[in-house]
Amino acid sequence: MRVSIATALTTALGLAQVSSGIKILMNNDDGFGGGNIRELYRLLKGAGHDVIIVAPAVQQSGQGGRTDFTTSPNLTAPTQYNIIPAGAPSLGTDPNDSNIWYYNGTPAACTFVALDYVLPNFYPDWTGAPDLFLSGPNYGVNLGAFVYSLSGTLGATYAAIARSIPGIALSASNKALSYKDVTNTSNPATWAATVSFKVVEQFIDNTGPSQPILPLGYGVNVNIPPLTSAELPPVVKTRMTGEAEVDYAAYNETSGLFTWENLRPRAAGVNACYNGDCSLPGETYVVGGGGVSVSVFTIDYDAPSVPYTEMVFEKAASLFEGAGGGDGNGTYKAKRHLTARRELFVGRDLKD
């Protein structure tokens, strides 16, 4: 199961190498001042890539794909680590780097603000959408399919993928650390960023000059185990839906409050295998054993063409026959929605 990063990713992609810099948009759910994202930003810039960060003004973990835009034009409290004071605009840049932006919204909202406002208005040389979207590295791993609806790291990523931009979510096992406290290269934030950089560079380097980094609608979820150095651990192809955890509401009789705990035995529903290679190990197992997990996912939520799917449709078969708005064959005739169009960073979306 354990293979080198070059073998695992180069073989999987089967693409010619290129070395030129690309346009990368970064985000996370831990805030724009986190050590992890700042260190990965530094490494990517050092490799010659054109990189911009647009990330939450404060920590926004657990927001999933929720798109929450601030209702105030100004910050009502300082940003994390007091980088920006209260009263400053709700959207702005780091005082020391104009390519690092904060926005007082959820991670997914930051993705959209970046694509629809920051890039078109402040980066005219970005004549198209970003070549790649990166989220993280997160503080704490995001393992299993259930975090797809919970994790802000994943939420920011699939918001970009929905806009036809290749996206990679990165999560590490270290604790939160301000970029101000990263004073040397021997620390967990730099280690997490270095391992992330090595994985991301494989996807970049093994992409042809006229080829997108990922196929349309595809994303990658990377999880990194605890590290003691910047050395790359074994890298393993994994499944998101394999030995995955799911939460339950644990009641504390003393406090009268609820918190989350991991369900035991593990829930069968979240680990059911209908798509992909069911022989691949799960992310949770691999990271628990000290490996880096690399899972490939799509944002096509439709059920696969298997007998179970047909059985589900069959239960409502009478509803599909001659239903209003349909053609008698279960085909819905949608009305074309007309709206004003403007130039947005929409990746590979077709424009009419």
Rank of each mutant, 00 (worst) to 15 (best):
T10E: 14
T11A: 15
K23T: 15
M26N: 02
G35N: 12
A47M: 04
A55W: 00
Q59V: 07
Q60E: 07
T67I: 12
L75Y: 01
P78I: 06
I83M: 09
I84R: 00
D97S: 14
A109T: 10
T111Q: 09
A114R: 13
D116R: 07
L119T: 09
G128M: 05
L132M: 04
S135E: 02
G136T: 08
Y139P: 09
G144P: 06
Y148A: 15
A160M: 04
I161T: 03
I161W: 00
G167L: 02
I168L: 00
A169V: 08
Y179H: 09
V182S: 07
V182Y: 06
P188S: 08
A193I: 08
F197I: 08
F197V: 07
K198Y: 01
K198H: 06
V200A: 01
V200P: 03
F203S: 02
T207M: 01
S210Q: 12
L216P: 02
G217A: 01
N221H: 10
P226T: 13
T228N: 14
E243N: 13
S255V: 00
C273N: 10
L280D: 02
G282E: 06
T284S: 14
G290W: 00
V296H: 08
T298P: 01
A303E: 09
E310M: 10
M311D: 15
V312R: 07
F313I: 08
L319P: 03
D327W: 05
T331A: 05
R341W: 00
